[in-house]
Design a protein around this nucleic acid. Structure first.
Length: 256
DNA sequence: ATGGTTGGTGTCCAA
């Protein structure tokens, strides 16, 4: 079973990329972020023709998340239960005997801004949700664009991306560690120790060509799934294609 | 640090 997370930065623009990548990588479950599509415009028919069912929660212009799966997605949850949020950033479903949560974590703009405060509130709500979710569903996968680089190995320049910088600040990394404390593990780090492997590169300043990136697209697996996690990685190839998303797909392989 | 690039049904905002 292969599960992947990809921030497509407009599914309208990136649908050909998604089709190509599904054909190349043949994942079983995919979480998408930044679809930027209202639900009536979601390309569920085209995806079904390629063997993927979809559930989605979108809006115009910003945000939007979806789950694609070969098997049916059941008990679908849109948004964080009990957390009022106009922004469509979370969707969860049960596929087979796995509970899958797909998140588009708030970017936060800059440390100290209103958006940063919203990011920390949002992450606190996610924590409480996942605490309940892992009790109800011990076989839990939490994937998404976390907009947090876990540690210094996950940034191209730790002097710039430091404890006071957005995406790497102490409060953001503490929020991620609180998720780990629920019994969730960064699947990539179960298999790879080295730094310098990234999932996002800024469009500006030739960020990808210079490999000036961050690893902010993560998949967390629960204690129960940890022994079944075989490998994880990031597929850089779609980032080399014409008119790419600024993110690459991050995948995990599970022996389930 | 700053500026720079991309997407959106836009002409500034978000990333």
């Amino acid at each position: 079973m292969r599960i992947a997370s990809w921030n497509v930065n407009s599914l309208n623009v990136r649908l050909p990329h998604l089709h190509q990548w599904l054909a190349d990588a043949t994942p079983d479950i995919v979480g998408l972020q930044e679809t930027k599509l209202e639900d009536p415009r979601f390309p569920d028919t085209a995806l079904l023709e390629r063997g993927y069912r979809s559930v989605f929660s979108g809006q115009k212009t910003y945000n939007g998340v979806a789950l694609l799966s070969r098997e049916p997605a059941l008990d679908v949850q849109m948004g964080i239960p009990g957390f009022e949020d106009e922004q469509k950033r979370a969707i969860a479903a049960t596929v087979g005997d796995l509970r899958i949560v797909n998140l588009y974590v708030v970017n936060g703009q800059d440390v100290g801004t209103d958006k940063y405060a919203y990011k920390l509130r949002w992450l606190a709500a996610v924590h409480d949700w996942l605490a309940a979710e892992i009790q109800a569903h011990p076989r839990l996968v939490v994937m998404g664009d976390f907009n947090i680089a876990p540690d210094a190995r996950d940034v191209h320049d730790p002097e710039v991306w430091n404890e006071d910088h957005i995406l790497t600040s102490t409060a953001e990394r503490d929020a991620l560690r609180r998720l780990y404390a629920l019994g969730l593990h960064d699947a990539y780090r179960l298999h790879h120790e080295a730094g310098g492997v990234f999932s996002w590169w800024d469009y500006r300043q030739a960020g990808f060509r210079r490999d000036r990136g961050l690893r902010i697209d993560l998949t967390l697996v629960s204690d129960a799934l940890k022994p079944k996690c075989r490998d994880a990685g990031i597929d850089r190839e779609p980032r080399t294609w014409e008119r790419p998303s600024d993110h690459a797909p991050a995948w995990v392989a599970l022996d389930v």
